[in-house]
Structure formats: C-alpha cells, structure tokens
Computed example of a mutant assay.
Amino acid sequence: MIDYRKLGFVSTKQHTICEYEGKMLAEHVITRDGFNDHYSILYQKRAPTHEIKSEIFKHDNPFFPNYNKESNTELKRRHFQTPIYKKEGNLLDSRATLLVNNSCTVGIANLSKSDTYFFSNSDADELFFVSEGKGVLQTVMGEIDYKKGDYLFIPKAIPYRFLPNDKSNMLIVEGKNKFGIPSEFRLAMGQLKLDAPYNHRDFHSPSRLLNIDENENYPIIVKKDNQLTIHEYTDFPYKVVGWDGWYWPFSFSVYDYQPKTSSVHLPPTIHTAFSGNKFYVMNFVPRMLDYHPKAVPCPWPHSSIDCDEVIFYVSGDFTSRKGISNYSISYHPSGIPHGPHPERYEQSIGAKYTQELAIMVDTFEPLFVTEAAMVLEDKKYHYTWDSPNHL
C-alpha cells in the first residue's frame, strides 16, 4: 500500500470502548498475511457477521473462464480485437477474462449499468484501467470518483461496486500475491523515493464515506477459490463511520505518471508502474524520446525467452507498429522473437517525442488464452511482420 490514511470518525486508541451517537461501535480489522502485514481498522455500527442466507451464485462466471491449453501449442503472436466485444451491463455481466495463469489474469469490461450488489474478490487484488468513461467507485471504505485515464486499485476482499455515469470501458488485471507498488520505488520505512515515477500526492484514497441510505440493503457477492457465493444480511453489513490504516482502495491517473528517458533506448521495465508476484504492469505515456545523435528510439526486435508480453493500446500512434486500433490487445508469448515493423524501426530515427499511450503487462509464467479471447482473435496477426503483407 501507499501510506497511512484516515477518513471519518475513529477511536483515539484502537481496541478500546468507542461510542458514536451514543452507541458502541464495532472495530473491524482487515489484515494481510495473517496479522503480519498492512491492515486497516473500520469502525462500524455493527459487526459484518449477521448473515441470514448464503448460497452459490448462479452466473455465467467470468472469473474461471474456459481456456484451451491446446490453443497454446501453436506458438504465435496474437492480436485480440477487443473493440468488437459488445457485451455490456454491470461488472459481472460485462466482464471477460482473456488471459490467465496462476499469478494474474488480464481481461476487459464494458460497464453500462450500475451494480445492484457489492462484490468482494477474496482471491486477488484488482487493478482497473479506465480507457473510456466516468462514474463512481463505491467501496465499503468510501467513494472514489473516476474518469478516463484513471487506474482504480481495489485491495483483496474489499467489497465494492461501480456506478458508471456513462459507458466505462476498462482493462482489468487481477494479481494474486504482492500486487502494488514495487519495492524498488520505496525507502526502507515505506515512503516513496524521490526518483520514483510518482509521489504520494498522486494516489487518491476515498474522498467521502459510502453514500447509501440507512435503510438500503445490498447483498455481497464474494469470489473465493474461483467460486462465487452470494451473502444476504438483515441490513447492509458495512455501515462504516470511519477508518484508518495502510490498506485502502485508490485511484491514480496515468497522466500523473512521470516517464524516464535516456540518450539511447532503455528496456520496457523502466516504465514500470505496478508489480505483483511474477508480473509487472508498465505505462507507455507521451514522453521525450532518446536523444543520442544516432539513437534508434524504436524498440529492439527481441526475444524475451522467459517472459510473456501483453499490450493494451489506448491512444496515439504507437512507435513500434501500425494496424492496431485503440483498445485492442496484443499478446506476444515467450519463446519466439517479436518487435517493431521493419519500416517503423528506421522511421523512428530522429523522432524527438511520442504521443503514444499504452499499458503493458509482462508475466513470468505462461499465459493461457481463454475461449473469450479466441473469439476476438485476428488470425492473420502473426504474419503481419512480413513487409509486403503487414497491416
């Protein structure tokens, strides 16, 4: 997590009698790694344990999608034309997972309706990138207004729901372990270093407590071990009057990311924004390009033989290739070379600046392609580097 935050009413001393409006509050501690890692304490009007019903949630579940391992036996570069994905609705209805492994997943969603439930992912932290749209992310720790270009990070097991003001297209990355700010960006006591690509002021925790009527009640849908369970209560179980701690959801605008440049080309890890166990999330943002008089700003043709590469193209003219529309996703598996279109390599010489915006996920264990992704695949993509036939 980022640092210590506080919102609303909290006790002067943890785990002591605490009254609010003449009634005793319940302390709800949310912790990681048992009681040995980051935590926050929520002060609630009652403990969130008064369930009256729980059962398996019947749904076309997007979280353990069908994937065909045989589809990966053909080692090739792939392009998923995600703009043709038309399914929309609330989070569960519009979400599609495209690539999966044991550490992370990559997917998309087209939110056009507000959720009528709160959702809790108890398997993974979730990172949403808003490529289009705006609205409100409601969490039990408070509300965050979101807009185009925002990342929304929701820690594991924090219930939330989306209230889009207009259609919101999103890239989604699930990270199952140690997902967040890379350790190399921190001092020993946790403060972000001065040479990190962002600072504490760039991360926005909830600005106000959850705004729902005292009499409103919403079920909680929980994902655990890739199974959905719906939990119902006599009244809404998260009537939070305040909280403090290091464990909280946040927004971060990709436009606040501070890129680094060099006299000659640097590897893509220099663009890292977030990381998890066996994967990284990187930002390619508008920036000055390499400034050596003989620099080739375009990336190398390369063979990252231990790393799969996923790129979500957001906007601009991407330096290394053409023929991919905004919001499409390319997938370049380890084991075979990939790189820029031949003429793009030469055309980049002398370029001083790029307006490209893209999100990249590099994984250090193989990704599997889901059936949802195969429906969106451009079958000719692997051959588009052949100069006479490229897009």
Rank of each mutant, 00 (worst) to 15 (best):
K260S: 13
G335T: 11
V140K: 01
G149V: 02
E377D: 09
R186S: 09
P164C: 00
R78F: 07
H231M: 01
D3R: 11
V369D: 12
N90I: 03
K6C: 06
K53E: 07
I17P: 07
V361T: 12
D213R: 06
P286E: 07
E174N: 15
E143R: 02
I154N: 03
S303H: 04
T269M: 09
A196D: 10
S334N: 11
F185G: 09
K193G: 01
E343Y: 11
G350A: 08
E356L: 06
Q14T: 04
N90H: 13
E70Q: 09
S114A: 14
A47D: 03
T82V: 06
G149I: 03
F252G: 03
N101K: 04
L192C: 14
A109Q: 13
S387R: 15
P206G: 11
E216H: 09
T363I: 06
F203I: 01
N283K: 13
A26T: 10
N226P: 02
F63K: 00
N217T: 00
I230G: 04
S122N: 14
P286V: 13
I158N: 09
G339T: 13
Q355L: 07
D145H: 14
Y39G: 01
V106L: 06
K294Y: 10
S103R: 05
V314K: 13
Y291P: 02
H50Y: 07
V173C: 05
Y291G: 10
V140M: 03
K193S: 04
D290S: 08
A157E: 12
P65C: 02
I305W: 02
R208I: 03
Y280W: 07
R32G: 06
E19H: 08
A124H: 04
L376E: 11
T16F: 07
F119I: 01
S94D: 11
H59E: 13
A124R: 02
K178V: 04
H50W: 05
I172N: 06
S168D: 06
N326Y: 03
V240Y: 01
N199T: 12
M282T: 09
Q44C: 12
L194V: 05
S348Q: 09
V240R: 01
T234R: 14
D235Q: 10
L127I: 14
F128R: 08
Y280G: 14
A96D: 00
A47L: 12
S275I: 08
F203R: 00
P286T: 12
R32P: 00
D115C: 06
S334C: 09
C18P: 06
P297M: 14
A96V: 00
R344S: 11
K193N: 03
F312I: 15
R77Q: 10
H332S: 07
T49I: 13
R161G: 11
P159A: 04
K23L: 03
D256S: 15
N121F: 01
E216Q: 12
T229A: 10
R46W: 03
I172E: 10
T73M: 07
I220M: 00
S387C: 05
V106N: 02
K6T: 08
R46C: 02
F119D: 00
L192P: 11
R208D: 11
D195R: 03
L209Y: 04
C298S: 15
K45P: 01
F64M: 05
S387T: 15
P340R: 04
P337S: 15
